[in-house]
Design a protein around this nucleic acid. Structure first.
Lengths: 255, 255
DNA sequence: CCTTGACCCTCACGTACCGTCATGGTTTAG
DNA sequence: CTAAACCATGACGGTACGTGAGGGTCAAGG
């Protein structure tokens, strides 16, 4: 299945012109050219476009985006982790700006004049490059970054086997707990939820409690995830719903 | 007191070149030119710069920023309200992007392939203009917008007198409650906090519970606000701390 | 007194990221 | 078979600055 420029543009909410520009830059080359000269985008191209748009939204210039995306040291999981970190950062700074605006509002009602630096400092250039350069400084080449990177990209077949075995055991426990009629907010069920969270953190990506909650919801709301979990739990009924409840209870416990 | 370009640039976290550019555009004219030709920025200029940077951060082109800022129908309070709304919106969409990234992460670990539109649709152009145009459509000229605008900009001297009287009464009640040794999380104290919140909403700006919490913290953390409240409460001791506790209790109650 | 370095000034050209025609072929609905 | 709706490739324009070039200003130190 291939998509035309117009289709991709509509899907992504960008203009056709932008896609053509990315093509010119070599940033996003459509998979094929049809006989009539039309651009034919593949699903891989779409995935690449997701990365492009995400990094661009975060303020990176396109050549930097190209460098980031084409970096051979970075695998897909690493990209998602990085996007997650960058988005979280951005949200944090926007929250600081929002907080400053609230302070300004209240200062006005009270007739208090704030210092210039209090009004300004958070609104400056949130250029991700500066922060990223700093991150590069902190992490670049050192162990932390490399280790975080090594995690998924260098798993051996044996590792994957162990991971799957761990996961299967965990899901079997969930199925058993559910079958026993154990309440999802019982300590045992919550422990299983915690184990699930740490499983994700050990093998894949950092997963704080709010994020874990979101995943619990995802498992119930998206039938594909529901089905996948059911399969892993040997068709235990409503296992996703059970997991979600346990995950939320566990998150509450650790709030 | 006037500031040089370099000082302002450092305060705001932007380049000197950018400030000169804003000068050229007529977007931010320094208050004065010193004898030596240096730009001299006043505190008002700094306040204007805060608006410029905020709207620019939100993605508005500079000429639009100029139009927004120079719009004579918009008073300072209205600007802050608008900035608050726009920032909140932006945070909301970034959160949607973050949530999508989390879904993508989990989809990878489960080996599920998402539909193209699921990967892309949130990352498109978050151009505030589109949304703003829509808001203009919804509100433009109609009552809601005008009314929201009329609120502070058209208060008469009598209105201000009533507002100040209301506020004085409220603070007197807080002082009394505190003097009586009434617990800040008692119903009566929480009612006062709620009254304070509604006072803000009626006279100044929308103030949801999370924001109200933030203000409570501000009252304690910033001595200028602490002092101001103490004065309004006839020097009742620790009134800001008392208010903060009541505000948080009230927010908990309405969570 | 004179220099050095950190500021400031005004042109002026360059660059990134597209928007916007202009011109023309292709495909699909009626 | 024709109009509308796509696709293509140039090519020029526009915004928001970056980046010198070339040259005054000012405080501190030798």
């Amino acid at each position: 299945m291939t998509y035309t420029v117009g289709q991709v543009a509509k899907l992504a909410g960008v203009t056709v012109r932008a896609l053509r520009h990315y093509d010119d830059l070599g940033l996003l080359r459509p998979d094929v050219r049809l006989k009539n000269g039309y651009r034919g985008y593949s699903v891989d191209d779409i995935e690449r476009l997701q990365r492009i748009l995400c990094y661009r939204q975060l303020g990176f210039p396109l050549d930097a985006v190209k460098a980031i995306i084409d970096d051979p040291r970075t695998d897909p999981n690493e990209h998602l982790r990085r996007q997650h970190a960058l988005l979280s950062d951005r949200i944090k700074t926007l929250r600081r700006m929002l907080s400053t605006v609230e302070t300004l509002m209240e200062a006005r009602t009270m007739g208090i004049t704030l210092e210039p630096h209090e009004m300004l400092e958070v609104f400056g250039d949130q250029d991700p490059l500066a922060h990223h350069a700093e991150a590069e400084q902190r992490w670049g080449g050192t162990d932390a970054w490399a280790e975080s990177h090594r995690r998924t990209s260098s798993y051996t077949k044996d590792d994957w086997k162990r991971m799957r075995a761990e996961f299967a055991a965990l899901m079997a426990n969930f199925a058993a707990a559910s079958a026993e009629g154990l309440a999802p907010d019982s300590p045992r069920a919550m422990d299983l939820a915690e184990e699930h969270r740490r499983h994700l953190e050990r093998w894949f990506y950092p997963c704080a409690y709010p994020m874990h909650r979101g995943l619990g919801d995802l498992y119930v709301n998206d039938p594909r995830f529901t089905a996948n979990l059911a399969k892993a739990a040997l068709q235990a009924p409503n296992i996703a719903t059970y997991m979600r409840a346990a995950i939320h209870a566990n998150a509450d416990r650790n709030a």
